[in-house]
Design a binder for these strands. Structure first.
Lengths: 229, 229, 229, 229
DNA sequence: CATGAATGAGTATTCATTCAT
DNA sequence: TATGAATGAATACTCATTCAT
């Protein structure tokens, strides 16, 4: 650059920097907000903190997100619901038996959600749903429903191919969901303050849950008798 | 007044009544608080509502509980701790195979916690633990650890008697815990705002979870292969 | 008091003072609010200023008035609409001809509204109506409509008794209203900053307006020909 | 660029167009501002709306008007001052009796101010004068005083020609002014939110006010007795 | 001349907690 | 012991104005 006497670079660069800033802002704000939301909860996080952490002023945040709730929604879209399309695609083209498919799903969930900061989002929703009904409804529609449908498809495929025993799909979905959501909830709440001996090692935990699910869904699994008396 | 000896009886009586009331107050307040905390969440419950529901004034509540948080702690002590002794006793003398024993345990949990207002307490703990570390530690010691020990004993008995396959006890406990805690968390959060079609029917849910556990713990259960890759 | 060994007076007095304070608060707040509203307008007046001027904290104001708008409504009721019942009564029992009656009405308006701080209220409404539609609707219902009805009754009586010529009542009401509302509006706006020579002397102004009205309503008044071409 | 003689024409042209635009801008902005101020009031109009409506960016507006208040002042100058010269001229050469002259004046006011968007300006002045003393003084000098003088001349002419009874000119001017200013104030405030039944039909209202004035100013008008007691 | 991204001061309302009675 | 009047900290969102480009 210093070797280039024509002063074309600076203006271009400047302009680019401006545009880049504007394009970068939402991402910077989302990153800051995720940190704070996960750490302190939705209600306890002040928008000004988010802005400051992102290096802008309060007003600027509202230039990109019309409200605190919209900021949270954007977070959800960015990290969770925006990925369903790809996931759905992957599921569609998965080759292999359904046991492997289920393992693959949990794997993906762990790598893309569970092991990342985004794992705080489901926990957040469980904690704040009561106080922010609009967010809860949004999360239901954008996450819970498509997510459940995804799991249901996997299970249905297993049944169809004779790899899983026939099952009540609606509740079977909860069999898969419960361990995952419990993990995030636990990890971000009581799990942070228990003695090291009872810390959950997430990958071990997930492996065992997967093991239980596959045993339970297996066609050779022996029905243990009547349910809850 | 000091010159009027006859006016002593009424005061005494009044005093007695007062004392009696004073003894009853904490319980009345705890009952009122449980109703409201479970119904509206911790943050959304105003102490004045609690006081009003308990039939006293706002100021009186602070005579018995030094803060809203202390009221919450007292709630935990009242409704969760203290039941383990009896439960442990029952487990000790249970006769029957371990499948039935596990079913019995879930049954008890459902009847005594899950189906009662006290089911809101674990959910509250999960939500507030992060902003309430001291209470979280307390809950760990007083509830989570004895509860886990109880479950561990049941599972160990099954293994010892050859009714359950050998297992990693620490994580097996979470296999049992996760479905229960997920149920209370879900029921008191997102479960309140989802379309009726996806409502969980708790007894059906528990029956299926028990079914999964028993299949998974069964000695005849086929190991499905490697864990999470 | 120091001569009275029985300590009955102090408690009574104290209790009385307490009650008196509580009873006095709304009035103190209304007085403070009127001063500020008239001086700075509704929007430009901060509730904290009102509270401070009344010698209480911000929170206390909201103990007595649920919102800033409610505070304003109370002001209107206190000074304007709360007086219509009595006025209506007086009108009903007025003895004398309708010319005297109209003069009496303007007189009352001047003494009870025009010459007091309450004269700022109508001006306030005219200024802020657009930005506070709910207040405007309230004022319409509580002040404009009953006020117009009152004037209409006076005029109708004059017509019925043959003391005023027949007239279009709806617009005749505005003939009476316009000079009064103009006076308050002018006085509290441009009138505050004009050279002394053009200051309006309100009583003279009102006398002349009354004179015009009586001439105009007179049965012997000569119709001046067609209206606006 | 300096080496390219042919490229001068376009720049010149561009420059010319720019200048022309520059000259047109204030007018475009004033027109846009009048629309919005009259429609939504001063406070509720955002400068960005004005700029957008005028087809420029927010920043550009501040190139021509140093503040929102200055924009308002410019509005007053543009639409009210400067018309008095012509009006005065017309008055000077009016032929006909003074009744017709007064009718002509109200007519002109209605057509040029009352019925146009400019009718919002006097209302804005009344509303904002208190928080805007400098503008109030300006309005007094530039609008109120010449306007009053105009009216005074008409009335004086009537008295001189024996067509109006002798009167206190200063206050008689307010007899004429009050109905007009009340109309604009009312129309732009409470008039916008009252039930249709009490809507003022401006031309009917003005005709009746003129009728009242002419009756009151008539030489045959019977004096109704003493003024305000 | 023109832009529009960024700024940050300004404010009504709630509610846990206190304390004079 | 009981009351309830009083407190005041705490927070999302708007919009006139600026200034780097």
């Amino acid at each position: 650059m210093p070797l280039s006497p024509v002063s074309e670079a600076p203006p271009t660069d400047t302009h680019t920097r401006r545009l880049r800033r504007k394009d970068a802002r939402p991402g910077e704000l989302l990153a800051a907000a995720l940190d704070l939301f996960v750490d302190k909860g939705f209600a306890a996080t002040r928008v000004e903190e988010v802005a400051t952490l992102a290096g802008v002023s309060k007003g600027t945040l509202f230039l990109y997100f019309s409200s605190k709730e919209e900021l949270f929604k954007a977070e959800v879209r960015e990290h969770i619901s925006g990925r369903f399309a790809q996931w759905s695609e992957e599921i569609e083209h998965f080759e292999g038996n359904s046991q492997e498919m289920l393992r693959y799903c949990l794997n993906c969930w762990w790598e893309r959600i569970g092991a990342t900061k985004a794992s705080g989002i489901p926990k957040l929703m469980m904690s704040e749903a009561r106080n922010f009904p609009e967010l809860a409804a949004f999360y239901q529609q954008e996450v819970i429903q498509p997510g459940s449908a995804l799991i249901a498809r996997v299970l249905q495929r297993g049944v169809d191919r004779g790899e899983f025993r026939p099952m009540d799909l609606k509740y079977a979905v909860y069999m898969v969901l419960a361990p995952l959501l419990f993990l995030t909830t636990w990890t971000h709440s009581l799990g942070t303050c228990c003695d090291p001996a009872s810390q959950i090692e997430p990958e071990h935990y997930l492996a065992m849950q997967l093991d239980m699910l596959l045993r339970g869904f297996s066609t050779t699994s022996a029905p243990p008798g009547a349910g809850l008396s």
